[in-house]
Write a protein that binds this DNA or RNA. Structure first.
Lengths: 244, 244
DNA sequence: CGCTTCCTTGAGTAAATTCAAGACTTGTGG
DNA sequence: CCACAAGTCTTGAATTTACTCAAGGAAGCG
């Protein structure tokens, strides 16, 4: 773990203030959270939590990207979630989790010790309601991903994955300076997320490059040259498309 | 919808009393629920809810099995959940759902109108806490299924599916008279649940029959002749196995 | 008993995987 | 600032798994 470079940002200045688990808290509630929060930082590649570990902390991703990974007995792995800024790690009332949480970029977390946080939830509807809402959002996302994993072709999987990245980075303004987007995962990690092999991911990504749908600038920076074509390749409904 | 054949079972006599959303309610709370509940019945094949429909009711499955289905533009479908007795339909704070809910057997639901129920949640921690717990259980199940869909072989998928059925029916005592289990889904529906085609499902099921792992009595009744072999075929950890 | 629906089985095909070799990035140290 | 090493990525060829297409057979319902 790195030394935190956000030492103690005020909640009111926090970049995820309006979307995280605390988004509906009033000034008093925020003051209470302010007292019990701590920041933790992780370097790209670090393990944030290991499957089965006792869950001492819960918290929000403030910066960076983390992934939730499940590994089978024989080493096959499936990523079951990607966490962007404002996403929550850990669950109320559970003492452990059934997947590993990994930092895929440098990550800063806003953490609360589980005990005090759970006591606060019990008396703070603004938090418990938001937590429920976030859990249901995660459930919806998991089910959408089940369609991807079970029924989509390699090409559709890639297109859906890229579209999801665009949507999340647009939201977070991780998007950086120009219109360029960041590809926070390696080919191998993408493969684990969408249920393919890294070779197939590479082939499909290059096919979309050749077709002029994507444009790459180095390994991990790219932009979408043809958003409509990208959406067309997802296999999703024409209506339900991306709204910016 | 059928005429309900449970007209007004008392909550205290309800078969799912100890596992459903109301499981932690005290006598007073139960009395309140008793007043606002209504039973609805559906025949096998009926649509319980359609994607995008305004969600007027929420409720628990009392008897029967329902499925959650997503359909792509071109007709490909992926089942994203199976609901057994005690499972909850609908979500607090959401006015619609993004999948169809179908009755695959005859189904009886214990329903509450969404408005009154949500008002009750707000003042009844015994319910809101249980709802949160159930949402997190569903999320865990969805993520386990993502591993199945993304990384398991046809044989592992079938074995995992059958093991899940055994576990749920053991729990519900749907298991009926003898040790026989019910296969509530057709080959086609199973295929939609585990991301295969019906032919592949049929082949794998028959392979397990020939190997003496499963024994069939007609189309939809079967028993597991070799539970250890079944679990061995799931690809899951030797430890995390079924506990009866 | 006959019809409909669901299931089985086979043969050929297609999509993605595996195996393998080589090329590009990126970061580090000289 | 360049060269090198390590890690990533690309591409091709062969293989495999599951899919598609097709026909026939069993179950279950009326």
């Amino acid at each position: 773990m790195l030394a935190p470079d956000i030492i103690r940002t005020k909640c009111s200045d926090c970049p995820i203030r309006h979307r995280a688990v605390c988004s509906r808290c009033d000034t008093d509630e925020l003051a209470t959270l302010e007292r019990i929060k701590t920041y933790k930082s992780f370097e790209a590649g670090d393990t944030i939590l290991l499957r089965g570990d006792p869950l001492e902390y819960v918290g929000s991703v403030v910066r960076g990207v983390a992934t939730l990974n499940k590994t089978m007995e024989d080493g096959r792995t499936q990523m079951v979630g990607m966490l962007f800024p404002s996403d929550f790690i850990g669950r109320p009332g559970r003492s452990e989790i059934d997947y590993d949480v990994m930092a895929v970029t440098n990550v800063t977390l806003c953490c609360f010790r589980r005990g005090p946080f759970e006591r606060m939830i019990a008396t703070t509807p603004h938090i418990s309601e938001r937590l429920m809402e976030m859990a249901l959002d995660e459930l919806d996302a998991a089910r959408d991903w089940m369609v991807l994993l079970g029924r989509k072709t390699a090409r559709e999987k890639i297109a859906t994955f890229v579209e999801m990245l665009v949507r999340r980075q647009h939201m977070d303004k991780v998007a950086a300076s120009n219109g360029t987007l960041v590809l926070p995962l390696t080919r191998d990690e993408i493969a684990d997320y969408i249920g393919l092999t890294l070779e197939t991911v590479s082939r499909q990504l290059n096919a979309m490059k050749k077709e002029g749908i994507l444009r790459f600038a180095g390994r991990s920076r790219f932009e979408v040259a043809d958003l409509a074509a990208l959406h067309g390749a997802t296999g999703d409904d024409a209506d339900g498309g991306p709204i910016y």
